[in-house]
Each structure stands twice: as C-alpha cells, then as structure tokens.
C-alpha cells in the first residue's frame, strides 16, 4: 500500500489504478485515456476483507462483486447489495470487477453507488497525507467525477447496519439482462425512515430527497410522490432514452418498489 500511495503521489493524474479492470481496460482500448503508469493494486490483500463493527459493516475496496454475492454477512445485514449485484453485468464481469473500482469509476448508471447512497455509506480515501472518510452523498460529483484526489485510493466502504425490521428493495430497468440500467432505484425503508437512491437518471447516483421527505412524513402520499420523483431528477439529454422516458421510468420503479413494501 505504501508503494502504491508513493507511486500515486509521484505520478498523480498521469497514473491510473487498476483493480478488476472492467472499466479501465475498455477505456484504454478505446484510447480514451492514456495514463503513463498503471498501478495494479490487485494483490493488496488487506483491501479484500469484510469486517463487522458493532453498528457497521466495512467492505474492502478490492472485494469483487461475486465475493459480496457469496458473503452470508452481506446477505444478512445488507441484502440490498445482494439484490443489486444480480443486476451488475454478467458473471464474467462480476468475477473481476470490484466494489471500489465501480465506486471510483462513478458511472452514473452503476448499481453500487446508488446502493451506498441509499444505505448512507461512507468511503475511506487514503493518501500518503491522510486517511479521510467521505459520505457517499458527498463523494459523487458528476459523470466519472468523484471527491477522490489524484493521490488518493478508495480503500474501504463503511455502511451502517440498517436498523432491525428495515426493508431493502432494488429495482432497475435495462434493455437486456446485464446491460447498464436506463434507470434504477435502491430503497431502504425502516420504521421511521425511508431512503431512496436513483441511478441512471442524472449525472451521478442521486438521493430522491424530496420524495424521501414526502413519503417519510406521509407514507400514503403515493400519488404525490410519483409526481415529485419525476420532477426532482435531471436526466441526461440522451436522444436514445430521452429525459421524459427516464422520468417515466423512475415512476414505474418507485411504484414497483413501494408495492414490495408491506402495506
């Protein structure tokens, strides 16, 4: 880790960290990026642990999607992740891609960013200078843009254990199984709180803050929530899937998610 951080400190923007390579390698293939140095952190085994605290779960950044899917601890305490991982690409990608890589890449349509938002997670960003924790809601800055500084590595994800009797729902709509979602929704409902995160409908994963507030205050205000969730997002101007379509999809997703909650 010290070596990796040292290289990163020296080369900064000219270096790229490669973990599972499921996003970086296609980018290199397309010649969209040409870093002078690739820093392979794949053998930093310290980043491959899941640790359980009293009130949180900490997930090492190098855990692959399939590792999370296989973890009984994640299944028990963070079932939202298990639901979401089923939607991440295909088995080959899930066996190479890592949670840290996906979050650091910050594709607006990626599943795990929205899950971390819904679960109110925080990310450990480590550099030779310091280690700091950044809340998921402060981490994502735009399309492929994050709070990561050029000399920082995302090392872990810490997620508070949901309160007892909370319910998680993950829904997304993709053209084909395993495609990037046109829209997706992660919802965590606890007796006194409701968090809804959306993916694929903005320049980053976003919390549907107004809709959350509305439904938390009045769980039966479903029609008003439908109106609100469609208007509080800013979908990308994509001619293939225009904003009107994505606004419609978040309504479909919210209705589906709410229908999975006990009445």
């Amino acid at each position: 880790m010290a070596d990796a951080l040292g290289l990163l400190a020296r080369h900064g923007d000219d270096a790229a960290i490669v973990a599972g390579g499921q996003s970086l390698l296609p980018i290199l293939n397309f010649r969209l990026a040409a870093p002078e140095l690739l820093i392979d952190i794949g053998r930093l085994d310290d980043l491959k642990q899941i640790t359980e605290g009293d009130d949180y779960i900490e997930i090492g950044a190098l855990l692959r999607h399939c590792d999370l899917a296989d973890s009984p601890l994640i299944g028990r305490d963070l079932p939202l992740l298990h639901q979401a991982i089923n939607h991440i690409a295909h088995p080959a990608v899930r066996h190479r891609g890592t949670i840290g890589g996906s979050l650091a890449m910050a594709d607006p349509a990626a599943e795990l960013g929205a899950c971390c938002l819904a679960l109110d997670g925080a990310f450990s960003l480590l550099s030779g200078r310091e280690q700091r924790w950044v809340a998921a809601s402060d981490f994502f800055k735009g399309v492929y843009e994050t709070a990561l500084q050029p000399d920082e590595i995302l090392t872990a994800i810490r997620i508070p254990k949901p309160v007892r009797n909370s319910i998680s729902v993950f829904e997304e709509i993709a053209r084909r199984r395993g495609d990037f979602a046109m829209a997706g929704l992660a919802l965590v409902a606890a007796p006194n709180s409701l968090r809804i995160a959306l993916l694929g409908v903005a320049d980053r994963p976003v919390l549907a803050g107004q809709t959350m507030a509305l439904l938390s205050a009045n769980p039966t205000a479903v029609d008003a929530a439908m109106e609100m969730i469609a208007t509080e997002i800013e979908p990308p101007d994509d001619p293939a899937y225009p904003p009107a379509y994505r606004r419609h999809l978040v309504q479909v997703l919210l209705r589906r998610a709410l229908s999975r909650l006990p009445q």
Binding site: R176, R177, F180, P239
Partner: peptide, 24 residues
Amino acid sequence: LRYDEDGHLMTGSFADYLVPMAGE
C-alpha cells in the same frame, strides 16, 4: 446504428449497439 444530426455515430460499442443475447 444511431447518428446525431451532425452525422456522428452514437453507437460505437456493444454497450450502445445492442445485439440480441441468448438470455433474451
């Protein structure tokens, strides 16, 4: 194969140009 109004191809990879997959 979608092009924008300037004639730029918008579907230059299999992420955007969707082929039928066995699963579907």
